[in-house]
Simulated assay, not measured.
Amino acid sequence: MTKSELIARLAELNPHLYQRDVERIVTTIFDEIATALSRGDRVELRGFGAFSVKRRDARLGRNPRTGQSVDVSEKAVPFFKTGKLLRERLNTGK
């Protein structure tokens, strides 16, 4: 599901809201999650999951095309861990 599909679905489920308002709400939620992660905070949505930031150490990599060694700097990457309710919902019937 893309962001625009999510907005359309939420607008369909909430006919009392204008689509532009639903779009503003979804964009604000995503922006707040990104802002919190950039500050190094953890964002937890109970039953859904938790977003956090993990650090990858600097390392010596290899260019696959040339085989030449390349220094890869330290970086922060977003990480998502699913919540218990979401995992159970995905695994029902298996």
Rank of each mutant, 00 (worst) to 15 (best):
S38T: 14
A50E: 07
R46C: 13
K54I: 10
G67V: 03
R39I: 01
K84Q: 11
R65P: 06
S73T: 15
S38F: 01
E23C: 02
L85C: 05
R56C: 12
D71L: 09
K84A: 11
P78T: 13
R46V: 13
G40I: 01
F80D: 13
E12R: 14
A34Y: 01
E44S: 15
R59G: 10
D41K: 08
Q68K: 13
K75N: 12
P78S: 09
N63Q: 06
A76E: 08
R62V: 10
R56T: 10
K75W: 02
A34V: 09
R9S: 14
Y18P: 03
T28C: 10
F48I: 10
G49T: 14
E74P: 06
I33T: 02
S38H: 10
L85E: 12
R55T: 15
R55W: 00
R59P: 01
G47V: 07
R20A: 07
S73D: 14
R65Y: 00
R20F: 04
G67H: 03
D57S: 15
D31A: 15
E23T: 05
V26T: 05
E12K: 15
A8L: 10
L10T: 08
T35R: 12
A50I: 09
P78C: 13
R9M: 10
I33F: 02
R9A: 15
K54P: 08
F30A: 07
V72Q: 06
R24G: 05
L86W: 01
G61D: 09
R62M: 04
E44K: 09
L10W: 01
E74A: 15
P15T: 05
L10K: 03
E23H: 05
L17F: 10
A76G: 08
K81H: 07
V22Q: 03
D21V: 01
K84W: 00
R56S: 13
E74I: 14
R59S: 11
R56P: 07
E12V: 06
F79H: 14
R20N: 12
P64K: 06
A8T: 03
T66V: 10
T35W: 02
A58I: 13
L17K: 01
A11Y: 04
T82W: 00
Y18L: 04
N63A: 09
Y18A: 12
K54N: 12
R62Y: 00
L10Y: 03
K81P: 04
T27L: 02
L60H: 07
S52Y: 02
